[in-house]
Design a binder for these strands. Structure first.
Lengths: 203, 203
DNA sequence: GGATCAAGGGAACGGCCCGTGTCGTTTCTC
DNA sequence: GAGAAACGACACGGGCCGTTCCCTTGATCC
């Protein structure tokens, strides 16, 4: 048995080269940035990273898995959900960061778009996307909303998951269905304020 | 010059075989239905339609273009926007139909999902998707909302485009980001009612 | 009704990238 | 310092791409 790279293997691969890993993740995002995700090949990533194709296939099952890990790695710092007590302002701050990443960051947006596209015919990759990339961040947002609900900033019978969808779905709708980007902060604020109105506590 | 198939050619291809066209469109949706869009190849479509690959490439530039035309062809009847005067009920009816198509119709959902994925790295195909498939239907919805606004069913300063996004984006969010399907009508009604609350006329 | 000419069928092509295998070398671990 | 695992390099069989060649079919025009 050639040792499955992904899930729970017993000894966590003691000799894996950290520098190769970095070079591969960086190369994958670089290539996505200037060609888009689609045309990028495992061979090209290997070449750019100065690494053998075999090394990539040893640790990742596919191009998508590489990009997923690269994005997860890159997104960590900026994604934290603020908690100032003012829900609306926290949402503006958090979503502004996300919008920048999705529509302006050439190292992030194109790679994520292509990755999402890829998950449409790769169930394992889809699982990774949901569990590793989206899951924790959605959970963050959910916690923030539950807290806001407990404090009475939004209605008691508002479903946090629905609120998340109303807030974030339009971003991905525009991104994936080519409906133009969210250019200015004003537009974002209008969106958030409408959603807040939908879940305002009953007076 | 080998005659460009897509745009404005002078004589509209007088001798094109209607039966081959039908067979190709049908074959493309059939194959999407039982393999998903991704694995489907032009060769497979040709084989299933009992047609030469060349015939496909004569009239369409890519697999995506075939599926796009097939979907546009298939969606025509069911997509009409009702106008009973009651905006909420009209939305429920229209969106129920859409949800069925997206999540239950094995001939429609998988093909559309894959097609959308494909548009992420094919700008021409993206243009076709927006202009031919989404454009006219979004315009229908927009007209219905403008009418509702004129009658005072929603707020005067509600942006129809924003309302459309709030309503429909969650559907595609769930579909493309693997967040589970919209199972029951109740859930759909809750969504619509929240959006209506966000754009309710000021009393 | 026969000539004409685009459309269609069939088969093959070079090219690209996939995922795997081989082999010799490097590098960490004990 | 010995052993093992990861690594770089290269080559492979295979699949599908989009295109090409050649020949047949069938609708349109005179």
């Amino acid at each position: 048995m050639p040792e499955t790279p992904s899930a729970s293997a017993q000894p966590p691969h003691r000799r894996r080269s950290a520098s190769s890993r970095r070079a591969i993740l960086d190369a994958s995002l670089d290539l996505c940035a200037d060609q888009g995700y689609g045309p990028v090949t495992v061979e090209a990533i290997a070449a750019r990273a100065g690494v053998s194709k075999k090394t990539i296939y040893r640790w990742w099952p596919s191009k998508g898995a590489v990009v997923l890990e690269a994005l997860d790695d890159a997104a960590n710092p900026a994604a934290d959900f603020p908690d100032s007590g003012d829900l609306l302002e926290d949402l503006v701050v958090q979503m502004e960061g996300l919008v920048r990443g999705l529509f302006s960051d050439r190292r992030f947006g194109p790679a994520l778009v292509g990755l999402i596209a890829d998950t449409q015919h790769d169930p394992m990759l889809a699982r990774g996307l949901v569990d590793d990339l989206f899951g924790p961040r959605v959970e963050d947002a959910r916690r923030r909303l539950v807290k806001a609900r407990d404090v009475g900033q939004i209605s008691q019978d508002a479903d946090p998951n629905l609120v998340i969808e109303l807030l974030y779905a339009p971003l991905y709708y525009r991104l994936l269905l080519h409906q133009g980007d969210l250019h200015d902060t004003t537009e974002l604020r209008v969106l958030i304020e409408h959603v807040m109105r939908a879940v305002a506590p009953k007076t």
